[in-house]
Design a protein around this nucleic acid. Structure first.
Lengths: 195, 195
DNA sequence: GAATTCATGTAACTTGTTACATGATTTA
DNA sequence: TAAATCATGTAACAAGTTACATGAATTC
């Protein structure tokens, strides 16, 4: 129940609503974990029945009521226990729809493939420009959850990983485009000489 | 239904049993997609009802019967349609349990954290030594499915991505270890001067 | 006037994981 | 003698996705 534990972790910083959890998620953890709103609400329900959280309703005028979740003692214990026990195999399964298509790309037209890889490249560059602005990201996040610099050190480590991997994807895409363009050239030359 | 389409792709190379599909998966696609046996059998069943595959049983003596799956015309069409239509957003959600723990590592003891990151580093180095032997990997795979060099070009591209990302993880872990070790030093110095 | 934000969720569905069952043969 | 390989699956459960519903207030 990794998502649940991640939510517990955030609630160990401060009590929050499901909606706020989603926002914090999207602005910090998002580059290495993600979750839909509906999934968050389900997890919160489960954990409340487990006794890891308790919730209070805060009335608001002109806006829907808020349900604010607070972590319990039991929740904290469960979180720490989870946090300390890293899985036996740290290497995580990757699932990339994109790479599956590259794998079978011999059945595609090279210009179409090039188009998609260029699109991929642009996307990664955009990601980099968001992640790359580390200081802003961390400051925003620090404000959002009112946490000290001791925490920021570790957030930085995860951001570093995100940035590095994004740069790697960019590098890959650039090399990829080059080698496919060469291939296109060869194919054209072959056409011209043999026909 | 990405897994289904991946299986279709493999069956477009040659008819295979579920068991063989699993083996091919583990030795080629595994570094960017993975699947359990039980999931493969379920997908195959689904696709057979869809009419994308058909299967024949081959009796064997002293071994269980084989059910050999062959892709149909409809299956081929469905596969190509899927292959050509890349998703609107190519950037894929990452889910890393490991990074979640790093994110919350301010609640861990630094020596314990260091131990886990070193373990991560070793794992990635092992992965690299498997993936890095590209020629062997591709040759094995080529034999396994009896495919030509036109396909190998694209397999190579996916392998390149895997290798690059693994190297990046190694680099990250090394830097990470350095900066945590410095942090440990500071903490010890602080202890010695203030107490 | 349409889209976005705030804030809650439910329901249906699809995927992914884990555990179990069978049973002979080969390798360590 | 224990384990791994070959080869099939089923069942139960956990997690992720998509679509829908409500409804006021604000921004474009």
């Amino acid at each position: 129940m990794s998502l649940g534990h991640t939510l517990l972790g955030l609630l160990s910083y401060a009590p929050m609503t499901g909606y706020e959890l989603k926002r914090v998620f999207d602005q910090s953890i998002n580059h290495f974990w993600n979750a839909q709103m509906s999934q968050i609400y389900r997890e919160l329900n489960n954990m409340e029945t487990h006794g890891w959280l308790r919730s209070e309703i805060e009335k608001q005028d002109a806006k829907p009521d808020k349900r604010i979740y607070t972590i319990t003692e039991a929740g904290n214990t469960a979180f720490l226990k989870w946090l300390e026990k890293f899985p036996a195999i740290l290497h995580e399964p990757v699932r990339s729809d994109f790479l599956v298509r590259i794998f079978f790309a011999s059945q595609l037209e090279l210009p179409d493939l090039l188009y998609e890889i260029k699109r991929f490249l642009r996307e990664q560059q955009e990601t980099l420009s968001t992640l790359g602005n580390t200081d802003t990201v961390i400051k925003n996040y620090q404000q959002m959850i009112k946490a000290g610099t001791d925490k920021a050190f570790f957030w930085q480590l995860t951001l570093n990983m995100g940035i590095k991997h994004t740069k790697t994807s960019i590098e890959w895409a650039e090399e990829c485009i080059k080698s496919i363009e060469e291939r296109v050239k060869w194919q054209n030359e072959y056409k011209n000489t043999s026909h």
